[in-house]
Design a protein around this nucleic acid. Sequence first.
DNA 1: CCGAAAAGTGAAACCGATAACATTTCCCAA
DNA 2: TTGGGAAATGTTATCGGTTTCACTTTTCGG
Lengths: 348, 348
Amino acid sequence: MNIKPTIYDIAREAGVSTATVTRVVRHDPHVKEATRLKVQQVIDAHAYTPSISAQNLNGNRSRTLAVVLPVISNLYFNRILDAAYWEAEKNGCCIRLFQTMENQAISPELVSELIRCRMDGVLFAGSIWSEDRRDLNAALEKLGKYMPVATICPPDVSLECICIQSDLVNCSRLPVRHLHTLGHRRIAFLGGSMHSKDTSRRGSGFLEQLRKMDLPDDPAYHVDAGYDMESGERAVLRMLSGLEPTHWPTAIVTFNDLVALGVMKQLKKMGLTLPQDMAIIGCDNQFFCAYTDPSLTSVDLHPEEMAQSAVRELLLARESSSRSFAIVRDATLVVRESCGAHLGYRRL
Amino acid sequence: MNIKPTIYDIAREAGVSTATVTRVVRHDPHVKEATRLKVQQVIDAHAYTPSISAQNLNGNRSRTLAVVLPVISNLYFNRILDAAYWEAEKNGCCIRLFQTMENQAISPELVSELIRCRMDGVLFAGSIWSEDRRDLNAALEKLGKYMPVATICPPDVSLECICIQSDLVNCSRLPVRHLHTLGHRRIAFLGGSMHSKDTSRRGSGFLEQLRKMDLPDDPAYHVDAGYDMESGERAVLRMLSGLEPTHWPTAIVTFNDLVALGVMKQLKKMGLTLPQDMAIIGCDNQFFCAYTDPSLTSVDLHPEEMAQSAVRELLLARESSSRSFAIVRDATLVVRESCGAHLGYRRL
DNA sequence: CCGAAAAGTGAAACCGATAACATTTCCCAA
DNA sequence: TTGGGAAATGTTATCGGTTTCACTTTTCGG
């Protein structure tokens, strides 16, 4: 393997000191035009670029932000990573990815790895906050001593960091209100895991909405259904087989679009026609929503914009004396066919 | 922001030299037990970990592999990134992601950034090879002087690097043969862009298969259709409206599953029943294939395993004097409903 | 034509580790 | 006791830059 030319090589060949080479590279104005030209020529000739490692060592930074999330194969997190990537790129930073899988906690190993690598900031996305709050805040506090920390998290979690919060109230309210407007009264919620703060928050927001609109909040309409298609299939089967068909809900709201995909498949297998026999609303507005049959009405939490804000705030926080604060990003309902809106008002 | 303790702090407090601290950290056996204990205690007390930047500078490496791909939002590349991540993780490396978007070329900026960051290796995935072969090989050769290079590429591209090749012959052959077995004679190919080597290779493999099986290879059955759902919709509409219904193909093979999604939507919109009126086979075997309606038969190129091999070979190549060579990964046809196989033999 | 401020440049310390080499300490056989 | 080799530890150069500070050269008003 070749050896890259170093600043010394350039300095020697240009007949100047390394300091001058640095000045030329950094576009320092305190260099005579003649010198600049001469040095630049040597730089170009050797395609010299300063070593990142040396710069990092010197500056005690890495120009790298860590993004910690459960899995990138989940499209919600995929979108977060993508948006974070471009926002970081725009600011001359790069992203170091950490996948924690289903591991809900921030492990001590992760914390020390982040510090060790002199990350310029860290963004947590996903349900890290489902752990014991004290442990979590302790870990965040420790991290916060070394780098700015941001989380994309449910509202009112009040972690001691930059909290980019999704609007889970509207995330529950929008679909319920929409279905109510369409005449639905028995509405079920499928998805997530009730052990997770994330879901229970969504779930309770959902129940709250039902009560506000004076709709039945039968616990049988409120089922754990994991986060993917298979669990969606199983959950809807479990829920319906436990109920008299006359008591079946007429609409189902799911934790995310993957669960909705599974639910739709299972319902069709049971011979139901969608959305006539059952309205469905998903969450995340993923790319395939417009291409399911029927196309899937979904809530968009705008993960891209949350990730963008997070990265921006992280980079800003390095400059200013960062404080912990929260930004709430609104939710949007994207109406397609699966809720039956195109069929008009439906039943009493 | 806190300052991490350095090896000097530890050495001073433990009353030893930095060399000894290094030895303790590196589990060097040449340390008296008493000394080890004393040093370890100080290390633990301060939660000391050596600085990555300093290690990198010293070792002239970064413990980082670059993964260059068009976009992570495309699930094919998403799977590659995911697999590369875990394989690297397993080997104590991390991944630095570069997204090139539709930019087909390896830009000189990218090359120098890779060198500048002392990447331990680089994996290219996607259609970088669509550019002028000489430029490409020049860039790869330059890169190859500084780090091992691997590509996940079509076969017989013969780049001077580690080539992990997908089995595009079977990728074309498997669906054509399967459809032929089911009785189809007029089979169309939709997708990609004929400007891309990737597609034209797939396309010509497809044509070759048609001829081998003595099936019509009408150019009208062979249409540019981009890489996503929208372009799939448009392409199938364009193709069919240019043909007498009696000359319509009875089956469509698409460049990938996203295009297939668009095709299916458009065909349904036109009132066709799938798969009775038109059989569809996609490519990539993405997670949603089992959840479309009808579920989508698809070719799996096993991107995860290709990424895994690539990372493994890159890390090996650092040790041995790396050579350029190729590994071909086979393709698999995953039969579901959209090809109509479950309906049995179909027509003469 | 002189002197002071401004502009340009270089020497050297430093960032935080590693590793080759040097030195000290220890133990045991002669 | 002492000499010698192994074990333990320290010294120092090095990785490739950046930055401070001091020094030299210009520039220009008086």
